[in-house]
């Protein structure tokens, strides 16, 4: 995570930037190390999901029906919309429109906060309906995947707050917006993980 924060310009670094990949990779090399680590972590969880689905088919067959599907759909649409706002923020700063970039970034952050709000409400609904972590292997997997994803959304929100503040102080321009781009890339990676999690938990039986 420290690497990801450095990549967004949150922490100073004594390591000179690699020029080898500049221009050929969106954002910077550091954020891509963070993104690939995040996706590798989720890949292991998806393998665990497949294993438990194989060994406990009955739990996974009944599992999605125990969940509030509308919350999963709302979370997915919110995440995709927030990702769209992040792209619009990047396009705005690329034409040096800082004000528009700020508005799109705030929209992105609000999307992230809405995602967290929907998840909190869903967890509360789960508890009221007996969907608790000790229930069965599907429910345990559901909490394991969604809590892990939640942590990444929180990190992403913190990164977005940081780039909103930096943008306010004029840190980004059409020529130099590496930190802003890195934050949006991390956000899209979190979106990618959810794109897989949603059907695994709410659709596949």
């Amino acid at each position: 995570m420290e690497l990801a924060m450095k990549s967004m310009g949150v922490m100073g670094s004594m390591v000179p930037p690699s020029t080898e990949l500049k221009g050929s990779v969106p954002g910077n090399r550091g954020i891509w190390v963070g993104i690939l680590c995040e996706l590798a972590e989720f890949a292991l969880m998806f393998l665990a999901y497949a294993w438990f689905k194989y060994t406990h088919p009955e739990d996974f067959h009944r599992g999605p029906a125990m969940l509030y599907t509308a919350c999963g759909v709302a979370n997915t649409v919110t995440m995709l919309t927030s990702g769209y706002f992040a792209v619009r923020a990047l396009l705005a700063i690329q034409r040096n429109d800082r004000r528009s970039a700020r508005n799109w970034l705030i929209g992105t952050l609000l999307g992230g906060l809405a995602f967290l709000g929907i998840k909190a409400w869903e967890f509360s609904w789960n508890i009221d309906h007996g969907v608790v972590g000790t229930g069965n292997s599907f429910v345990a997997m559901y909490y394991y995947l969604t809590f892990n994803h939640l942590v990444h959304v929180v990190w992403g929100c913190l990164g977005l707050i940081w780039v909103i503040l930096r943008n306010e102080f004029g840190a980004y321009s059409a020529e130099d917006h590496e930190g802003l781009e890195a934050a949006t890339l991390y956000w899209h990676a979190t979106d990618l993980a959810w794109i897989v999690i949603f059907p695994l938990l709410y659709v596949l039986r």
Binding site: G72, V73, V77, L80, T81, Y84, P199, V203, L204, R205
Partner: peptide, 21 residues
């Protein structure tokens, strides 16, 4: 282009949800 991609992503999500039901 990115707006169309966003609409396509939302449509695919709703398609997935429909499948589950």
């Amino acid at each position: 282009r990115v707006t169309l991609v966003w609409l396509a992503l939302v449509a695919l999500t709703l398609g997935s949800a429909w499948l589950g039901e």
